[in-house]
Structures are given as C-alpha cells and as structure tokens.
C-alpha cells in the first residue's frame, strides 16, 4: 500500500528533475517576490526602530519564515486536477488500483520536498549576502508548535485547492476560481505584510478565514510573539478549517465522480 504511493512520489520527483531549468526559474521567481517584500521592510527600518510594534529583527524574521512557509505549504501541483478532469485523464484513477487523493498527495509531497531543499539554500544565501538581523528560535516548544502549524496548513491548502479543482466536474473553466483563490492567499495570507498591522477589526475578520493560517499564522508562531490565547484560538480555527476543508473535499469528490461520464477512446 505504502509502496504504491512511494512509487508515485519517486516518479514525480524524477519527473520534476527532468525539467531542471524550468524548476530553477520557478525558484528564481519566488526569490524575486521575496526580495520585494524584504527590501520594503528593510527600507522602513533604515529610519525607524519600531513600526506596528515590530522591530527590524522581528519583521525580517517574519518575512524570511513566511518565505520558508510559502515554499512548504503553497508548493503544490494540485491544480492539475482541473485539467485532468476536463481532458478525461481522471479516467485513469477509475480503472487503476490507486486512490485519487493519495496520488495527488504523494505528488505534492515530492514537489514540496524539492522546493524545501531549494529554499533552504536560497534563504541561507540571502542570509549570508544581506546579513539581516533575525531571531533564531531555540525554544523547542515553539519549534514544535511551528511544525504542527505547518503540517496543518499543508493539509488545509491541499484540501482547499483540491476541492476548488474538483469544480471542473461541473464547470468548463475553473481558472477564474483558482485565480481568485490564489489572489485571496496573496492578499489575506500575510505574505506581503503581517495581518496584525491592519486595524484590529479587519484583522480579526480576516483571522476567521482560512487564508492567514497558510502563511501568517505559522510565521507568527515561529517568532514566539503570540500569547497563549492567540495561540490557542489560532490552532483551533486552523484545525476547524482543516477538518471542514477535508470533509468538503471528500464530499465534492464523491459527488463529482457520481455524475461523471467519460466519453472518447
């Protein structure tokens, strides 16, 4: 059973290594996106010592850790599911002894592992080139909480993306929905700025949505600046969204497969 999905993981890994230049350029793009955010904050702290309650060290740590979180949580090939449904490739899963969810999850893990191995070198390079003042977290409890938040965020992102992709069972064009989903993560996920710099009312509203739990929450957990109540409410909302998304994904998949009709060869 495990062997089957390990083989999918292995094949996906090798498949990604075929187009090495493509992957390197993909990583180059993420470095460019990171540099924009990094230098905006770096510039701010050339004339200030504290902004929105953040010091230079805490905000640059946030920016670096959210970049790492992005590479782990958001690196995914799950959006292929829409194309597989509309082009008929989904039929393969109906005739082969493998689960659809397991197949995409194994592929995603390969993608994440490759991205993580690159992002570690990138961040190390950026650290040695720019020498930012950052917080190195040594508290084991906080590091464990950080890892837990990352794992939950990964599952949440997978389930949400998968559920959106499955809409291809009913819709001809799902790119509009995907684009809105990605832009919502960009806008409300905390990749550009920490959500808590927004006015409290707006920040609290955003914290009820799943988006800030993909980047903002894990990065804040790492910085160790969240109080006990914030930590507990954060993990509670993240867990609730993860369960809801997983259940939703399974239901949408079952409903889609029930009404799916394959035509062609």
């Amino acid at each position: 059973m495990i062997n089957k999905y390990f083989s999918i993981f292995n094949i996906s890994w090798q498949n990604m290594l075929i187009y090495r230049l493509n992957f390197v350029l993909w990583r180059f793009r993420t470095v460019l996106q990171f540099l924009l955010v990094y230098f905006v904050w770096w510039t701010v702290f050339q004339t200030q010592t504290s902004v929105f309650g953040y010091t230079e060290a805490s905000i640059l740590t946030y920016v670096l850790i959210s970049a790492l979180t992005r590479a782990i949580v958001l690196s995914s090939r799950i959006m292929d599911i829409g194309g597989h449904i509309s082009e008929g490739g989904i039929v393969n899963f109906l005739v082969k002894p493998q689960g659809i969810i397991g197949f995409y999850f194994a592929r995603d893990l390969a993608d994440k592992l490759l991205n993580i191995s690159f992002v570690i070198f990138e961040l190390a390079g950026i650290y040695f080139l720019l020498k930012p003042e950052i917080i190195i977290q040594t508290n084991i409890n906080i590091l464990l909480q950080f890892i837990l938040s990352i794992v939950l965020a990964m599952v949440l992102y997978f389930a949400l993306s998968f559920a959106f992709g499955l809409l291809a069972f009913w819709l001809e064009n799902i790119w509009g929905i995907y684009f809105l989903f990605f832009m919502s993560i960009e806008a409300l996920g905390g990749g550009l700025f920490p959500i808590d710099i927004l006015p409290e009312r707006f920040a609290n509203m955003i914290l009820l949505t799943p988006f800030p739990y993909l980047l903002y929450f894990p990065a804040k957990v790492y910085t160790g600046t969240l109080g006990y109540d914030q930590l507990m409410s954060g993990f509670t909302i993240l867990s609730i969204w993860t369960v809801i998304s997983w259940v939703l994904m399974k239901r949408v998949l079952n409903a889609g497969l029930r009404m799916y009709t394959a035509v062609g060869h």
Partner: peptide
Amino acid sequence: AVLLFLISKLLRFFI
C-alpha cells in the same frame, strides 16, 4: 470567469 479575474486583480491592487 472574467468577473472573477477582475475581482481578483482588483483585490491584489487594493491590498
């Protein structure tokens, strides 16, 4: 879909 793309781009711009 055009409407969703438009809303998404406006969201990015607005943020």
